[in-house]
């Protein structure tokens, strides 16, 4: 039987690459807060069973509607990739605005918490064998002075991953991937010079969205059935320097 997988923030970059890979063997619910073109699913998923639901993870009502949609359509949820999040434009600590702080915390930290709570409980109530993967960042491990609040929310996601792993225990595994510098539209939008950053990576290149998708799919799978509460950095060795 195919598994039902929800992946939030999945219409571009890492989320899209992951949903493409997951859709090869599962029924996948993709999501963002913007809406998609009529052709999006057909163009990206080659006829695999993929459904879209618009929801802003910082809005609990949206998440409850998404939950109702999943219950009505499938009656069950097996796996979640809590990927949705925002990266604000780089900004030093003295100039970070209260609005920026509120928005980043609301989406990345509180939104991820609500996603894990609502959909983790849905897995617990409807599926026997569940698994969750969150997306943090190496910034959440090593800090980033030009994105201090973003990094703090990503550190918060590391803690949420461990708390939820303990909370769900043997019922649902919860793990995180911590991408390093990955070549996606979102990282390009921050204006960071890829050359400057690849010099830091000891293997001298950016990672690809597909490489993060590989790690997420491994952690979700039964191959990883004894791995829970872990943070897997997929960074080419970035954090070694």
């Amino acid at each position: 039987m195919k598994k039902i997988v929800l992946i939030t923030g999945s219409t571009q970059g890492i989320g899209l690459a992951t949903s493409k890979k997951l859709s090869e063997n599962n029924i996948v619910i993709i999501n963002d807060n913007k809406g998609i073109d009529d052709n999006f699913i057909r163009e990206n998923f080659k006829g695999n069973e993929v459904f879209y639901f618009k929801a802003d993870i910082s809005n609990s009502n949206d998440l409850e509607s998404l939950k109702d949609f999943i219950l009505q359509k499938f009656g069950r949820l097996d796996m979640v990739v809590a990927h949705a999040g925002i990266i604000p434009l780089p900004c030093d600590i003295d100039n970070i605005t209260p609005e920026n702080i509120d928005k980043t915390v609301n989406v990345n930290l509180i939104g991820t918490f609500n996603t894990l709570k609502i959909f983790g409980n849905l897995i617990k109530d409807t599926s026997k064998n569940g698994s969750i993967v969150t997306t943090t960042s190496v910034d959440g491990i090593i800090g980033e002075p030009y994105n201090a609040i973003y990094s703090a929310t990503k550190a918060g996601i590391i803690s949420l991953t461990k708390s939820f792993a303990r909370y769900f225990g043997e019922n649902i595994r919860v793990n995180a991937v911590a991408p390093g510098l990955i070549d996606t539209p979102l990282t390009a939008s921050t204006g960071e010079d890829p050359k400057a950053t690849t010099d830091y990576s000891i293997i001298q290149r950016m990672g690809t969205a597909g490489e993060i998708a590989n790690a997420i799919c491994f952690l979700l799978s039964d191959e990883a059935s004894y791995i829970t509460g872990q943070i897997l950095a997929v960074d080419g060795g970035f954090t070694l320097k």
């Binding site: 461990k162 792993a165 303990r166 225990g169 595994r173 390093g180 000891i202 293997i203 990672g207 690809t208 490489e211 993060i212 590989n214 790690a215 491994f218 191959e223 990883a224 059935s225 004894y226 791995i227 829970t228 509460g229 872990q230 897997l232 950095a233 997929v234 960074d235 080419g236 060795g237 954090t239 070694l240």
Partner: peptide, 30 residues
């Protein structure tokens, strides 16, 4: 469990994972 994880780390799927320590411990260190 151990064999599955080692194969993943050796595979081309893990090309961007380097210097990591992956615990396969059921969450015991939590």
């Amino acid at each position: 469990d151990v064999a599955n994880t080692i194969l993943f780390l050796l595979s081309s799927d893990a090309d961007y994972i380097n210097g990591e320590n992956l615990n396969v411990n059921g969450g015991i260190l939590l």
